[in-house]
Amino acid sequence: TIDDAFRAIERAIQAENEGRYREALKHFLDGGEMIVTAAEKEASQKVRNLLLHKGKEVLEWAEHLAEWILE
């Protein structure tokens, strides 16, 4: 659900702030994927587009974090 997705993102932010970057990455990926999944089930085109945009933002952040971890 969207609530689960945002809880995962909150955990990711907390982990990132505490320097637990790999854990943060996992939570960002989980949250982003949950948002995209919820968007695919959404009946309203406007809400679907907003959710897809937010999911994409979260997944892009996860990608940047992963690249930073690997440096």
Rank of each mutant, 00 (worst) to 15 (best):
G31Q: 05
D30V: 13
A62D: 00
R7K: 11
K41F: 09
L65Y: 03
D4C: 12
E10D: 08
D30C: 14
N17A: 12
R48N: 01
Y21K: 01
T1D: 08
I2C: 10
L65P: 00
T1C: 10
A24R: 03
E23K: 02
A15I: 03
D4S: 07
A24D: 00
K46A: 14
L59S: 03
Y21I: 05
G55Q: 05
I9F: 08
E67M: 10
E57M: 15
G19V: 01
E18S: 07
Q45M: 11
E40H: 14
Y21C: 09
E23I: 05
L59Q: 06
R20D: 05
E10W: 14
A39N: 03
E33I: 14
L65K: 00
K26W: 09
R11G: 03
F28C: 05
T1V: 09
T1F: 10
R20P: 01
Y21V: 04
D30P: 02
E16P: 02
L70G: 08
E67K: 13
V47G: 04
A39I: 09
I35D: 02
R11L: 13
I2R: 03
E33K: 15
E63P: 00
G55Y: 15
H27V: 03
W68N: 03
E60K: 14
G55L: 15
R20M: 04
M34L: 13
D3G: 11
I9Y: 02
L25H: 03
V58R: 00
V36Q: 07
N49F: 11
E60V: 05
I35R: 00
A12V: 03
K46E: 13
L25F: 06
I13K: 06
N49E: 13
L29K: 11
E40T: 14
L51T: 00
H27F: 13
R7P: 01
R22M: 13
V36A: 08
A8H: 11
H27S: 06
G55R: 10
T37M: 12
Q45S: 10
E71S: 13
R48A: 03
T37E: 12
L29T: 06
V58A: 08
K54T: 08
I9P: 00
V58F: 09
Q45Y: 09
G32R: 07
R7E: 06
L50S: 07
E33P: 04
F28H: 00
L70T: 09
K41W: 08
W61H: 11
S44N: 14
R7G: 03
G32D: 01
K41M: 10
K46C: 14
R11Q: 10
K56R: 12
L29A: 03
A15M: 09
W61R: 07
Q45P: 13
L29M: 09
T37A: 15
K41H: 10
E42I: 14
S44A: 07
H64V: 07
E23W: 03
E18A: 10
I13Q: 04
E18C: 12
K26F: 08
G31H: 04
V47I: 14
L52V: 03
A5K: 00
V36M: 15
H53Y: 08
F28I: 05
E67Y: 11
L25A: 03
A12R: 01
H27Y: 14
K56C: 13
W68L: 10
K46I: 14
L59H: 03
R11K: 12
G55W: 14
L25Q: 02
A8C: 13
F28R: 00
K56L: 11
G32V: 15
F28Y: 14
D4H: 10
V36E: 03
W61P: 00
F6M: 09
K26R: 11
V36I: 15
L59Y: 08
H53P: 01
N17F: 11
A38Y: 08
E57N: 06
I13A: 07
A38E: 04
H64A: 09
R11D: 05
A39E: 02
A8K: 09
A43N: 10
L25Y: 09
L50E: 07
A38S: 06
V58Q: 00
N49Q: 10
L51Y: 05
G31L: 14
F28D: 00
G55K: 04
E60G: 08
L52R: 06
V47K: 07
E57H: 11
E18Y: 05
Y21Q: 01
A24Q: 03
I69Y: 05
Q45T: 10
I13N: 02
I69Q: 01
L52G: 02
F6K: 04
R48K: 09
